[in-house]
Lab assay of single mutants.
Amino acid sequence: DTINITLPDGKTLTLTVTPEFTVKELAEEIARRLGLSPEDIKDTHNGKTLDPSLTLAEYGITPGSTITLEIK
């Protein structure tokens, strides 16, 4: 299953994830792909900052969802 990550420059990154991924694991994968530190990444969905300890499923993030990435 894939989700879309909207980057600060407007580009989109597509990642393969499972509903059990935590937001922290997602940030780590994004950081790895972009050459950043996971601590520099802030993920938001529907205007809410995502708690790193919760899973994508707990936020109702499903395949095809879009998450907005902010760099701290």
Results as ranks from 00 to 15, higher is better:
Tyr59Val: 15
Pro8Arg: 08
Tyr59Ser: 14
Ile71Ser: 05
Glu20Met: 10
Thr18Trp: 13
Arg33Asn: 06
Asp51Phe: 04
Thr44Met: 12
Thr44Ser: 13
Leu69Glu: 00
Ile71Leu: 11
Ile61Glu: 01
Leu13His: 06
Thr22Ser: 04
Leu54Pro: 03
Asp1Met: 15
Lys42Trp: 15
Leu36Ser: 07
Ser65Thr: 13
Thr18Glu: 04
Glu70Phe: 04
Pro52Met: 14
Glu29Leu: 10
Ser37Phe: 11
Ile5Pro: 04
Lys48Leu: 12
Gly35Val: 02
Ala27Asn: 15
Gly10Lys: 05
Glu25Asn: 09
Leu50Gln: 03
Thr68His: 14
Ala57Val: 12
Ile61Phe: 06
Ser53Pro: 02
Asp9Gly: 13
Asp40Val: 12
Glu28Lys: 07
Glu58Ile: 02
Thr12Ile: 11
Pro63Asp: 12
Thr2Asp: 05
Leu50Ala: 04
Thr6Phe: 12
Ile30His: 00
Lys48Phe: 07
Thr44Gly: 11
Ser65Tyr: 05
Ile41Arg: 03
Thr2Pro: 05
Leu13Tyr: 07
Leu34Ile: 10
Glu70His: 12
Leu7Cys: 09
Lys42Ile: 15
Ile67Val: 09
Asp9Met: 05
Leu69Met: 06
Thr14Gln: 11
Pro63Tyr: 03
Leu36Asp: 02
Leu56Gly: 00
Thr18Asp: 05
Glu39Ser: 14
Pro38Asn: 07
Pro52Arg: 09
Phe21His: 06
Thr14Arg: 10
Thr6Tyr: 12
Ala57Asn: 06
Leu34Ser: 06
His45Leu: 14
Ala31Phe: 10
Pro52Val: 11
Pro19Tyr: 03
Glu25His: 10
Val23Lys: 00
Leu56Met: 02
Thr22Leu: 04
Gly35Met: 04
Pro52Ile: 08
Asp43His: 15
His45Ser: 11
Leu26Pro: 00
Asp51Ser: 05
Leu7Lys: 02
Asn46Glu: 08
Leu13Met: 10
Pro8Cys: 13
Leu15Val: 14
Thr62Ser: 08
Ile67Ser: 00
Ile71Gly: 06
Glu58Leu: 02
Ile30Tyr: 01
Leu15Ser: 01
Thr18Ala: 06
Asn46Gln: 11
Pro63Glu: 07
Leu69Tyr: 01
Ser65Asn: 05
Ser65Met: 14
Phe21Lys: 06
Thr18Met: 05
Lys11Leu: 13
Ile71Tyr: 09
Thr6Arg: 15
Thr66Lys: 06
Ile61Gly: 01
Thr22Gly: 02
Leu69Thr: 03
Tyr59Ile: 15
Glu25Arg: 08
Thr6Asn: 14
Glu58His: 09
His45Trp: 15
Val17Glu: 00
Pro52Trp: 13
Thr6Trp: 11
Lys11Thr: 12
Thr12Tyr: 09
Phe21Pro: 00
Pro38Ile: 15
Ala57Pro: 04
Gly35Phe: 04
Pro38Phe: 15
Leu69Lys: 00
Ile71Thr: 07
Pro19Leu: 07
Pro8Leu: 10
Ile30Lys: 00
Pro63His: 08
Asn4Ile: 09
Ile41Glu: 01
Ile67Asn: 01
Lys24His: 07
Pro19Asp: 06
Glu20Ser: 12
Val23Tyr: 06
Tyr59Leu: 15
Glu58Tyr: 09
Val17Asp: 00
Asp40Leu: 13
Thr18His: 12
Glu58Val: 01
Leu13Pro: 00
Leu34Cys: 09
Leu7His: 02
Gly10Ser: 03
Pro63Trp: 02
Pro63Ala: 10
Arg33Val: 11
Pro52Lys: 10
Ile5Glu: 02
Leu69Cys: 11
Ile30Glu: 00
Glu20His: 10
Gly35Arg: 04
Asp43Glu: 15
Thr62Pro: 06
Gly47Ser: 06
Gly10Asp: 03
Arg32Leu: 10
Thr66Asp: 04
Thr22Cys: 01
Leu36Val: 14
Ala27Met: 15
Ile67Thr: 01
Ala27Gly: 10
Asn46Ser: 13
Thr44Trp: 14
Ile3Pro: 04
Thr66Gly: 02
Thr18Lys: 06
Val23Ser: 01
Thr62His: 09
Asp9Lys: 05
Lys72Arg: 12
Asp9Glu: 05
Lys48Glu: 09
Thr44Gln: 11
Gly60Glu: 04
Gly35Thr: 03
Thr44Pro: 14
Thr18Pro: 05
Gly47Met: 11
Val17Pro: 01
Ile41His: 03
Arg33Lys: 08
Leu13Trp: 08
Pro19Val: 05
Thr18Leu: 06
Lys24Glu: 03
Ile5Val: 13
Ser37Val: 11
Pro38Lys: 06
Arg32Thr: 07
Lys72Asp: 13
Glu25Tyr: 03
Pro8Asp: 06
Asp43Arg: 14
Lys72Gln: 11
Thr22Arg: 03
Asn4Lys: 10
Lys72Glu: 12
Lys72Met: 13
Thr66Met: 05
Val23Arg: 01
Leu26Cys: 03
Thr2Ser: 09
Thr18Tyr: 10
Leu7Met: 11
Leu15Thr: 02
Ser37Asp: 11
Ile61Cys: 08
Ala27Pro: 00
Tyr59Gly: 07
Thr14Glu: 10
Lys48Gln: 12
Leu69His: 01
Thr66Cys: 13
Ser53Cys: 10
Phe21Leu: 12
Glu20Tyr: 07
Asn46Cys: 14
Glu25Gly: 05
